[in-house]
């Protein structure tokens, strides 16, 4: 394991400190309880607040999405480990203006349980909380018999669009509703060419030889459902798109947003090769790509690989996606 770190125990603390310092124009980092990254001007009077969080190692998710037009606070846990209820509660209290708080939670047992406890505690203190569960990963089949689909790259779209709804003044129920609508219309699937190493584990989460690819990986270095011999980028992209297009009710003439997301260690040039194929396939099917975004947004440390996400857009989602945003990782119109 070779990393640009000091003590593995200090990775999250030092990284969040550096992040806080680098972006002190838009956010504030609180270290106790560890850690809460809050929008500089929180709580914003009258505005519904959005709080998200989860294990670290997915940067820029979630801290990179804190700021005007998106999240009010993010709660980073240890690497790949959900934070405990304490900082989630602290974040919820710090950003609530009285208009209520939406928790955006990726569907993992740990995240669900810890956010659940925090929401209970917040309610006990008189704060209204709505939870939006994100579960966009079509790699997980038979969800009746599993912990359910995982929340992966689509999370940033839920955060962006629900964040814009809150910013324009929607009430708690409406912000939660649009968040759930985005999730319901979003599907993702990812693959890995090379695994990542959790600093305190010291060894890769799985091993792949020079010719192997994991299809259907999650974002925690967990192996996927299938291991195949490497193929061309186009063929691999098709393998990601196929289950998405099977699952998402979408037809010729529909508008979609395409997100090609890098897992952290993939050169941008390769992500654009994947995007090129996605655009080609969707054009063949008569589906209009009206919004697109390519980059490292929901990562898995230094994992090499990519995921493809499609969001079936309607006019309102498009307008909210386009609305101004000013965070460390996403910025436009401001």
């Amino acid at each position: 394991m070779k990393k640009l770190i000091n003590d593995p125990e200090d990775v999250v603390r030092e990284s969040v400190q550096g992040f806080g310092h680098a972006h002190d124009d838009i956010l504030t980092v609180f270290e106790e309880p560890p850690f809460v990254i809050a929008r500089k001007d929180a709580p914003v009077a009258g505005k519904v607040a959005l709080v998200s969080g989860g294990g670290s190692g997915h940067e820029p998710l979630h801290g990179g999405f804190v700021g005007r037009g998106m999240l009010d606070a993010a709660v980073p846990g240890p690497v790949f480990t959900s934070p405990t209820p304490d900082p989630i509660l602290a974040a919820t209290k710090a950003v609530d203006s009285g208009a209520g708080v939406v928790h955006i939670v990726k569907n993992y047992t740990g995240d669900v349980l810890n956010f659940e406890t925090a929401a209970d505690l917040a309610l006990a203190e008189g704060i209204e909380v709505e939870t939006v569960l994100v579960d966009d990963d079509v790699a997980v089949k038979d969800s009746l018999y599993t912990a359910g689909r995982r929340g992966v790259a689509g999370t940033m779209l839920v955060e962006k669009i629900a964040g814009a709804a809150a910013e324009r003044g929607d009430d708690l129920a409406a912000v939660a509703e649009i968040g759930r609508r985005v999730n319901a219309n979003t599907r993702s699937m990812g693959l890995a060419l090379a695994p990542c190493t959790v600093p305190h584990a010291g060894e890769p989460s799985f091993t792949l030889d020079e010719t192997e690819v994991e299809i259907g990986i999650g974002i925690h270095g967990e192996p996927g459902r299938e291991r195949i011999a490497i193929e061309s980028a186009d063929a691999l992209t098709d393998r990601l798109l196929e289950p998405i297009l099977e699952d998402l009710p979408i037809a010729s003439g529909d508008d979609v947003l395409v997100l090609v997301n890098g897992m952290g260690g993939t050169p941008q040039s390769e992500l654009y090769i994947v995007y090129r194929r996605v655009a080609e396939v969707l054009a063949e099917r008569g589906i209009s790509v009206t919004r697109k975004i390519v980059g490292n947004y929901v990562t898995s440390l230094e994992m090499q690989g990519a995921s493809v996400t499609l969001l079936k857009l309607d006019a309102e989602m498009t307008e909210l996606y386009d609305a101004p945003v000013h965070t460390a990782a996403l910025r436009w119109g401001l």
């Binding site: 480990t81 959900s82 934070p83 405990t84 740990g110 349980l113 810890n114 659940e116």
Partner: peptide
């Protein structure tokens, strides 16, 4: 509850 996190904490 306040130190473990993840699934096993709760």
């Amino acid at each position: 509850i306040s130190t473990v996190g993840g699934a096993s904490g709760p």
